[in-house]
């Protein structure tokens, strides 16, 4: 049991060191995680990591949190997952609280206000960029294009809860795929193949799905 705690602490500590590197997006930390986990600690193989990353990308939530949790799980089960998650989360948590404190002190300073005014424009650019990146894996044919447009329109003009829309999306996806197979438009495998060929991790910033 003592060994167990020691290893848990190692997991925690490893991810704690990686945490502050995730400035501006989780993808910055992936090479670091890879090196730490496969070469230094030899906890997992390269193949394991690629598998974990592919899956972390495809499930909702921030990739930094997802992949850390996942790797922690692979190394040390549920306890390992919690240790890794705490490790990756705590540094950013404290940094954010510090920045919040600073911001609340300084927010009415004219220079700070001026800077924030401009930063907000570049944040829009960041979001548009995330949207553009996301589009590359999401929009793979006419139906997905239509779905994205209508989701956008519905959000803009109707006061519907985003969660509801996400559930609709899942439902539509399942029904549509079934229909297409029934009508013989597509073999079931080809959908995933299409998505896979569009996979290109480089442009991902690690903020989205």
């Amino acid at each position: 049991m003592e060994f167990g705690w020691k290893k848990l602490f190692q997991i925690f500590w490893t991810f704690l060191k990686i945490g502050p590197v995730t400035f501006g997006g989780g993808y910055a930390m992936i090479p670091l995680i890879k090196r730490e986990v496969t070469q230094h600690k030899k906890w997992l193989s390269e193949d394991d990591i690629s598998e974990v990353l592919a899956l972390s990308e495809s499930i909702p939530g921030a990739i930094a949190l997802n992949s850390s949790t996942f790797i922690g799980y692979k190394i040390g089960g549920v306890k390992g997952a919690i240790a890794a998650l705490l490790g990756i989360f705590l540094p950013t948590f404290f940094i954010v609280i510090l920045m919040s404190m600073m911001f609340l002190q300084l927010q009415y300073h004219p220079k700070v206000e001026a800077a924030l005014h401009a930063i907000q424009a570049s944040i829009v650019a960041l979001i548009v960029y995330a949207c553009y990146s996301n589009m590359k894996t999401a929009i793979i044919d006419k139906s997905t294009f239509l779905m994205a447009i209508s989701a956008f329109a519905v959000l803009l003009f109707l006061n519907i809860h985003p969660i509801l829309l996400i559930l609709f999306g899942i439902l539509f996806g399942v029904v549509l795929t079934k229909l297409k197979i029934l009508l013989g438009y597509q073999k079931p495998e080809s959908i995933q193949e299409k998505a896979d060929t569009n996979e290109n991790r480089e442009w991902y910033m690690g903020e989205g799905i």
Binding site: S58, Q120, I123, V124, I127, V128, A130, C131, N134, M135, T137, A138, I139, T144, F145, M147, A148, I149, S150, A151, F152, V154, L155, L156, P162, L165, I166, F168, G169, I170, L171, F172, G173, V174, L176, T177, K178, I191, A195, G208, I209
Partner: peptide, 21 residues
């Protein structure tokens, strides 16, 4: 199939976030 439907919705959501902002 679920992800096939989920992904474009997320694209729409992010686009909406950009416009709101």
């Amino acid at each position: 199939a679920a992800f096939y439907g989920l992904r474009p919705i997320i694209t729409g959501l992010i686009g909406y976030a950009a416009i709101r902002f």
